[in-house]
Every structure is written in C-alpha cells, then in structure tokens.
Design a protein around this nucleic acid. Sequence first.
DNA 1: ACTTGACCTTCCAGTAGGTGGAAGCCTTAT
DNA 2: ATAAGGCTTCCACCTACTGGAAGGTCAAGT
Lengths: 139, 139
Amino acid sequence: MNIGDVATLSGLPAKTIRYYEDIGFVKPLRSQNGYRIFRESDAHKLAFLGRARALGFSIEDCRNLLALYEDERRASAEVKDIAGQHLKRIDRKIAELVEMRATLAHLFEACAGDHRPDCPILADLATKGPDGEVLDRTG
Amino acid sequence: MNIGDVATLSGLPAKTIRYYEDIGFVKPLRSQNGYRIFRESDAHKLAFLGRARALGFSIEDCRNLLALYEDERRASAEVKDIAGQHLKRIDRKIAELVEMRATLAHLFEACAGDHRPDCPILADLATKGPDGEVLDRTG
DNA sequence: ACTTGACCTTCCAGTAGGTGGAAGCCTTAT
DNA sequence: ATAAGGCTTCCACCTACTGGAAGGTCAAGT
C-alpha cells in the first residue's frame, strides 16, 4: 500500500502519517522508487493511533498504549491506569472550561451590545485579576 | 517599576511580560542600564491581558479587546461579539471533551484493570475509527 | 513519444503561547 | 570585596501537526 491508501484507510492525512513515521510509530518499507510501502499491520497501527488521538490521548500516551497493545502479556491494569489519568485530565479541563463559560456567559448577558461604549466585559477585564478577584486600584 | 514589580502586580511571569512586549502588547521605556521601566498604565494593561487570557481569549482576541478598551468611542456590541464567538468556541470544546469523557469513562468501567491482558479499551482502539465507527477488518 | 495530472519524495518553516536555560551585566547588602 | 538576586539578550524547546516549495514517478490519454 502507498501512503495515500493507508491515509484513506486510517483516516489520517498523509502528512500526519509521515510525521508518525518520523517519531517512530510506524516503520514502513520502501520500494525502489523511494515510495513508502505499508503493510496491513501498519494500517492497523495507524488506525489505532487515529482512534487514540481522537479520544484525546497524547502522543506519549499513544506510545505506551501501542506498546501495551503489542504486548500479549500486558496487564489490563496498565491500560486502565493510562486511561484513568487521561480521564482525570479531561475532567480538569472540562471543569476549567465550564468555569470560564459561566463567567463569560454572565458578562455576555450583562453587556448591552449596542453603540454605547459602556461594557461590563471590559470592566471585568480591567478590574479583576486572573482568578476573578477584584484588584485594588485605589493606590 | 521594574519587570519584577509589574510581574507581581499583574500576576504574570516576567518571561511572559517580555514575550508580550515582543508581540507588541506593551512598550515599556528603558532606563540607562537597559532595564525596562513600566508605567502604571503598562501594569494595568498587563493585568487586563492576564485576566483576558485566564478567560481563554486568544492573543488575537486580546489584541482586539485591548484596542476596544483603549477606544473611548467603542461600541459595546463589538466587545460582545468577540465574547460571543469565544463563548461558542468554549461550548464546542466542552461538547467535544464531554463526548470523549463519556466514551472513555464507559471503556474505563468495562476494563477489569487486573493482571490479565484482555482489555476493552485496547479493543476499542483497535477496532474503531476516529469517530467511533466499527471498522471492517474481515478483508 | 509526449504530455497531463495525480501521486509520491524531502526539507524547511510556521502555528499558539509561552517556558527553560546559558552567559553576562547591574544593584544592594554585608 | 563579594555574594545574592534581579535584570538583559538570545536560542532552543514544547505539542502535534500543517503548509509549501522543488522535484521525482506513474498511469492514462492523444
């Protein structure tokens, strides 16, 4: 298979597949004309990676997951641990975004959004610190 | 004020403040020894940026918000529009993460997490495409 | 045989938003 | 005098790709 075929099969752009070769995820053969030749197993791996990335796993996680996938003697506990840590990261990220969203939605509602310059959004940005605490500017 | 003072005031690392100077957010004066000298207004701006970044606005958004902030004749509608677009981006991101989380949590629950190799998480990664559709590997 | 267009190759640069570190000057206190 | 801490610049690195240039290859059509 050429790179285009495996790109279609795995759903990954050819550029990304070349990048994945660079970082050692796949090691396709080469034909005489220099083209990469992918085996079934390469296509399989790339699809695995595509799915793992789509679930938000980092490249490093993917490396570990791939190693476990190929290790017949793995303990599922190791996989579960990686997934668990990722789940925690996702939860933290969601919490962060939800908080941002709440603050922002509040400001958005309070803003008239007309031709006048008065704006609670700018007022917030100008008078609060990173964590939303009111800054003292009386000095 | 030296950079350390304004770092303390704004809550931003000195490194970040230098970076913000690089990209044109602030233009501190220089004293004879080469040290940056920040005015009140610079500290003010940097705090504004810190808060905007904490609310997830991009650097480009910050540039626009800062311009509006400094424009006495702004229409709040412009600010509201920027905030509204950002709100939409946040909502999309949250939706994406929530979906990831659901899939992952499901797999996490299904995995025994013991010494055995059988693992629904790996099985999912191996048999599904980026969007979770089952791949045909009968060929 | 020749051309066209779709593939494929490598390599370099850039994205966002900083962060880390080295090498070296300045200031202040002891 | 010296040591600590603050300041400077510059360069590299981080994640995970993506875009583009310059050029080789292949299959189809004329």
